[in-house]
Amino acid sequence: MSVIFRLLLMAGAVFEFILVIRMIRKSAMSIADSIFWFGFAFLLLLLAAFPGIAFWASELLGIESPVNLVYLVIIALLIHRVFKLYVRLSEVNDKLTRLAQDLALRDHEEK
């Protein structure tokens, strides 16, 4: 893990942190939803600040380069997030359908 790579990780984490704060202040994201992204930024910072963690873990898992471990962690977290997002999307879709149907049926009764 080169110094440039670690600086890049930190910059990414700081950038993400600022973005999340801005979204919360604009009420574009709920605080409950922001937990993941705060945790994510913190993890990036941690991995960049203490490269020993990545070295130790990559050796443990038999991954040749510690950088690959960083990628692996990021990709795994993101895939999990996308999956959860799909579940949420299905839920929201079901609720939206129910609401629209209910509205349509009410309109019909009032006619």
Partner: peptide
């Protein structure tokens, strides 16, 4: 009955 938005055939 009119849906306010398009919900698809199943809905």
């Amino acid at each position: 009955i009119s849906h306010p938005v398009n919900l698809g055939l199943s809905a």
